[in-house]
Design a protein around this nucleic acid. Structure first.
Lengths: 230, 230
DNA sequence: CGCTGATTTGACGGTATTCAAGGTAGGTGG
DNA sequence: CCACCTACCTTGAATACCGTCAAATCAGCG
């Protein structure tokens, strides 16, 4: 009875997790969830804290429960490129690899479940459904990264900013969309300077395609905005 | 005995494949190899032929036996970005997805083994070691794509060209490295115009970091070239 | 040899960056 | 409550970088 009670308590942590439905964890069987509970521990990062450093050994794998993190690569002189964002349900870290090619940093307060990379790898190896789900996510991320390569390599500043606004608008439940990033961060994501981002936003506002405040925008002419996104 | 002979004949196609050692296929058990033989058929593409079109339904998965293909995304007005190259042992197509976000085109004569996407997915589902190998490849490609995002978003033309030469030199067995791409294709890969690529190559030549002919180059000062690649 | 496609080089112009100044908003402490 | 501070944002001016257009050269091939 005590064992059963303990298991119940243990499993409730993962089974009851807010992120579970959107996460890789949704593919866990109840027994896998209990095992995961035993291996993982919850942590909280404050804004600006870094979970993984570029070129470091990858000791951890993390599952995002709440908050948003940025994946960034940078050059010796400080130029930085945001490679992607990770939110609730996403996996960060580099399973099956020894070295991270990017940093993972919290954009705001962030909660994750983390476990050691070897522990996760062994867990995955014994749960093919987890590896399958991980594969689907990796292929999805790969498509996303490649679409972004087209933007970075071939789109003009105006097209890049319009593309980003379309993405933000699509993800937002609100009609009045909150910017999840600062102008600097948008520049780092789009491969532009923060001044250029600001100028292009002002242009879109001047042409009536959006209404704009510092922290929010609203799409006024979606068809035209999408067209400008190319 | 006839059965054994038939199996031997069947398995010899895959087992004896030149690409097998470098390929996902190296993870096939003998029985998996025989099943794969039954499902896949060999095809040959001429230079410029396209196996998969951007935005098409993804009906095929292909295993490259010889030759090189480019993965490209493009905009309505014809601007094109090369997202990556696929060579011997690489997998092209989009398993577990219904739509390709890029085209796959042969850069020269190319041989592949192709099979229907549903057939491959079922094959993978029944062979966890294949899915695992596919996962490792996908994670590797994802790292590669993300490193390229840093180049496209933040490096100058000179840095981009130097980076590309370093990659070519690393992959080449020869000391005298053959360009595997035209100037136009290098531009499409680097997010530059072909003229800018040519000018940056001439600059590197003028500064004595490389010797250069139209179809070959040789690195004369590797340390300095790597430094310029940032 | 002459054709074709690729490459090189020059001149010019446009786009995005850099540098700089001023403005705004939110938070803190007097 | 207000002044101040900090971080972020906007806008302007000058500059640098890269793209476009154009012409000349080169390499391979029938």
């Amino acid at each position: 009875m005590q064992l059963a009670a303990a298991q119940s308590t243990l499993s409730s942590r993962c089974m009851g997790c807010a992120a579970r439905s959107r996460s890789l964890c949704s593919n866990f069987s109840p027994e896998a969830a209990r095992e995961f509970d035993r291996l993982a521990r919850p942590i909280t990062l404050a804004r600006g804290e870094t979970l993984v450093w570029e070129d470091d050994d990858t000791l951890l794998v993390g599952f995002v429960v709440s908050g948003v993190l940025k994946l960034t690569a940078s050059l010796a002189d400080g130029r930085e490129q945001i490679l992607g964002l990770a939110g609730m349900g996403d996996v960060v870290g580099r399973p099956f690899g020894t070295r991270s090619s990017y940093s993972v940093t919290a954009l705001g307060q962030t909660r994750l479940c983390v476990l050691g990379r070897p522990a996760f790898e062994q867990f995955a190896a014994t749960h093919p459904e987890v590896e399958h789900a991980l594969l689907l996510r990796a292929l999805d991320e790969l498509d996303r990264a490649r679409r972004w390569m087209l933007l970075l390599g071939r789109k003009s500043a105006g097209e890049r900013v319009a593309s980003l606004l379309v993405e933000f608008a699509e993800r937002s439940p609100e009609d009045n969309v909150a910017f999840p990033l600062t102008r600097q961060q948008m520049g780092d994501l789009l491969g532009l300077s923060l001044e250029t981002v600001s100028r292009e936003l002002s242009k879109l506002k001047a042409r009536g395609l959006i209404t704009l405040s510092v922290k929010h925008f609203r799409v006024e002419d979606e068809a035209c905005l999408r067209q400008r996104a190319a």
